[in-house]
């Protein structure tokens, strides 16, 4: 069983809140332009729609038979798309073409197939990309015979593979942990863990944005991201910790443990969006979405999830799992 009653309730409430927010946005949109800025409302509506879609698809895949497999495939597609954006943004040379082919069509599917096979392949999927992928990429690039900026090029491909595929694959891997609560097997549904994780990450992003607007003064690194402030960071980590703690019924954690996990997730989410901002700034783009006109920037939405997933996964596995 993936979805238990508390998780169902949480998912229901979430979809309802998003739906209300969407209709509220639609109502705002009908206001005259002097009252609200239509561009901001459009961005808001667009994000709400994207979130709604993510949770609706996720909820649907929890409910169907082979729900875990469906969720793994969903994240596999997200990884593939994120990697596509990452590599498109990164200048590569002709000599990298074959290595890229392997990255897209061998390592990415292989990682998700191993995750889908489950916990008994934990050791294999934990090292497939950091060991085999890490060594394979420079070898294949070297065989192509182009030495110009060799280290830089291979490092970029490795980083893309690690962030977009390896790190993100830990999110669906949460569904197959043998969780324990108070020394006994936890009876809840594992979908709650993934839901808890995604909610906390996204609440962290959102609250950071809002707190930054409200009380933000000192920008952390102006050259990297002008909207991330110390005040926003601290306030958002605190609120995320408090709110995340309240989600404890869908997890094997108690209130305090859920709050601690939320703290870690909020900090890692912040780390992810700062790092990806630095990469974007280095390449001179604002969003991965504007990289190619009219294209949806999946990486813009996934950056904090990518960084928080492996840390949350390993902490949970270490302290709350029988494996």
């Amino acid at each position: 069983m993936l979805l238990d009653v508390p998780a169902e309730i949480l998912l229901g409430i979430l979809l309802a809140i998003l739906a209300i927010a969407y209709f509220a946005g639609q109502a705002l949109r009908r206001q005259p332009q002097s009252v609200v800025n239509p561009a901001i409302v459009d961005t808001f509506l667009y994000r709400i729609r994207a979130w709604w879609l993510l949770y609706a698809v996720l909820g649907a895949s929890f409910l169907i038979p082979y729900g875990r497999l469906a969720t793994v495939i969903l994240f596999g597609i997200l990884s593939f798309w994120a990697l596509r954006e990452f590599i498109t943004l990164t200048p590569t040379r002709l000599g990298d073409h074959r290595a890229l082919f392997w990255v897209f069509f061998v390592f990415t599917p292989a990682q998700y197939i191993l995750v889908a096979l489950g916990q008994q392949y934990f050791e294999t999927y934990s090292i497939l990309i950091p060991v085999y992928g890490f060594l394979f990429v420079p070898t294949r690039v070297a065989l192509a015979g182009d030495s110009r900026r060799f280290l830089e090029r291979t490092a970029k491909i490795q980083a893309g593979l690690l962030i977009c595929v390896y790190a993100l694959s830990h999110a669906p891997a949460l569904l197959d942990l043998q969780l324990i609560k108070d020394g006994e097997k936890w009876r809840g549904g594992s979908a709650g863990m993934l839901l808890f994780f995604l909610l906390v990450v996204q609440f962290g992003d959102l609250s950071q944005f809002l707190w930054g607007k409200l009380i933000g003064k000192r920008v952390i690194a102006p050259a990297i991201n002008s909207s991330k402030t110390w005040e926003g960071f601290v306030a958002s980590v605190l609120t995320t910790t408090l709110l995340g703690g309240l989600f404890w019924p869908v997890t094997p954690f108690n209130l305090l443990e859920a709050a601690c996990m939320s703290l870690v997730i909020a900090v890692m989410g912040f780390a992810g969006s700062m790092t990806m901002s630095a990469i974007k700034r280095d390449r001179g783009v604002r969003d991965y979405g504007t990289l190619v006109q009219g294209h949806v920037g999946i990486l813009d939405r996934m950056d904090s999830i990518c960084f928080a997933a492996p840390v949350f996964f390993h902490l949970t596995r270490l302290f709350f799992s029988a494996a």
């Binding site: 596509r84 954006e85 590599i87 498109t88 002709l94 073409h97 074959r98 190619v292």
Partner: peptide, 15 residues
Amino acid sequence: RVLPRGEFLPVPLLS
């Protein structure tokens, strides 16, 4: 970059 000269396997980047 999706399919450069002399290559026969495409890499699915964005264009």
